[in-house]
Design a protein around this nucleic acid. Structure first.
Lengths: 319, 319
DNA sequence: CTGAAAGCGCTTACAG
DNA sequence: CTGAAAGCGCTTACAG
């Protein structure tokens, strides 16, 4: 910029004015400066500008695993909202390691990102408190944080489970199980809570064994239908049912959509949601704060919907 | 930092020394400075440091769509290599729009990223030449750029197609088709080239109609086997074959693996590769340059491998 | 309409 | 072992 000023025979400030399209520069001067910029191939150093300004127009996105499709979709959603604002996004994975999360978050804060969107690891997030106080707006996504209050964009897992149970009930099923592996994570916990609530309010028996199904014992269990807590569980359930073709049919509703689901025979019903929507919601929460909103922490829930995949109808419960 | 210096009663430089763990500061001074840092909740502004240093320890990753699973895996691979170096990653999507690519790349350059990894859009990339000359190391991934010479990390599509044809030939197939939609993109072009070369060198007839198969006419064509050029085509082929169960069997080899492929009946063979590997390769190329390598542009090809998905064997050609 | 000075938060090069 | 000055590339606040 100094070189440009020298070349054009003007002061630094005038170059700055031209670059920023500020009013009050004669056309001749402007032309001269623009010429010098062209000749020297000058490009303003955005980082320097931002240092002076105090903003970075940057947000950090921390998730379990960038390569995971749900997290990738989240990032995409965040980007869609950020792009309109001219914000750039730093992305990083924690591999669900709290230590790695802290390390990443802190180095992002050291770069003075304007905001942080984080899919929290199981660890606690107290280390973020001082950063948040120091002005780094933080929003959580997919899971709420522990020991910190902040905005969060979540999936309505509980509603999804209720919807699944209601759907199976409408097909005559009463002996509905839940195949979900670990029940302690936040998301599977919510799902299970929804399942239990729906079973109770429908007045269905809720055998405790039905919530500890495994792909192996599913075929020999007494359930006629099962809600699977993740795409992986859905796959395992379908595979184990297919491997025992002579066994009775068990209706499957999976939580989470997957590629080529439409090709399956028999088909499968899934409760699913738009992952990018969570990212957009999180970004909206974040920008709302950056725009000056100062109220108490908010939670946005993205609703799930029911989708029938594949040609076959869900198998009805036998009388 | 100024405040910390005042609080500790030392000069700015001394604080800098402590923060950077430089040798030659008495333990007492160090303690005093550390105390002030603690009290004031001081965090070094990395951006300011980097402005002075001239580096940003940042690389930009531009792809078609962050949410796409292949590109997400690429980003993950880049991150794995970058993390060790302490580099942070800016990510952005182009939606295959050349204009958006240029806009993104330029704003990344304005932030003075140390390097750029880009999955190029169909447009030309001349606009990057001045940036590259200005010192922004650029590496391309998945597709080579046009009008620019630079390092690139690619997939060996040609080899993948050869492998697929060889596999089908080993099962007795000679009338092998190619279902790939548009033949003009770089990647499908490479695939087609490999297919043609393999057919020719095996001495198989290569009916031109076999390279313009569609999911609809596949069933009525004269091929006994087909190589599908993308996951989408594989899905379409499988669906259309399944929809005509009385039609003769056509063996399918797909390019690209997909979720739950193992569950399919009959199974499917895919030629696939590790997408993250491309990201890692691109990052290695980039860091090689940042470390001072100055040779001519290089191309790294990630090899594909053949994987049998699902229980069923590939159907043999009828005599 | 244009410019000289000070400063963003840090480091570099040099003294003491 | 410690510090005062200059500077990274830009903008802000104030003069002229």
């Amino acid at each position: 910029m100094k070189d440009v000023a020298a070349r054009a025979g003007v002061a630094l400030k005038t170059v700055s004015r031209v670059v920023n399209r500020e009013a009050g520069v004669t056309p001749e001067t402007t032309t001269r400066v623009l010429g010098a910029i062209e000749e020297l191939g000058f490009r303003r150093n955005e980082s320097a500008r931002l240092l002076r300004t105090g903003k970075t127009a940057t947000i950090g996105f921390i998730s379990d695993n960038w390569g995971d499709r749900e997290h990738a979709a989240l990032g995409r959603g965040i980007e869609e909202v950020s792009r309109e604002r001219g914000f750039l996004i730093f992305a990083g994975s924690t591999d669900s390691d709290p230590e790695r999360e802290e390390q990443l978050a802190l180095s992002l804060c050291a770069r003075r990102v304007d905001g942080l969107i984080v899919v929290p690891t199981p660890g606690d997030h107290e280390y973020l408190i001082s950063e948040i106080e120091a002005g780094i707006t933080t929003v959580f996504a997919l899971r709420p944080p522990s020991h910190v209050t902040a905005d969060a964009a979540l999936v309505d897992e509980e509603g999804a489970a209720r919807m699944a149970v209601a759907h199976l009930a409408a097909h005559g099923h009463r002996r509905i199980g839940y195949l979900g592996g670990d029940h302690f994570g936040y998301r599977s916990g919510e799902l299970l809570r929804g399942y239990r609530a729906a079973m109770a309010s429908a007045g269905f028996p809720a055998d405790e064994a039905w919530t500890s199904l495994t792909p192996r014992n599913l075929v020999d269990s007494t359930v006629t239908a099962v809600l699977c807590g993740s795409r992986e569980h859905t796959a395992l359930a379908l595979r184990s049912l297919a491997a025992a073709p002579n066994a009775r049919r068990v209706a499957v509703v999976g939580f989470g959509d997957f590629e080529l689901a439409d090709y399956l025979t028999p088909g499968v019903t899934v409760v699913t949601y738009d992952s990018a929507e969570i990212g957009r919601a999180a970004a909206e929460l974040l920008f709302g704060r950056l725009d000056g909103y100062h109220g108490p922490p908010r939670r946005v829930y993205v609703k799930a919907r029911l989708v029938q995949r594949g040609a076959a109808e869900i198998s009805p419960a036998r009388a």
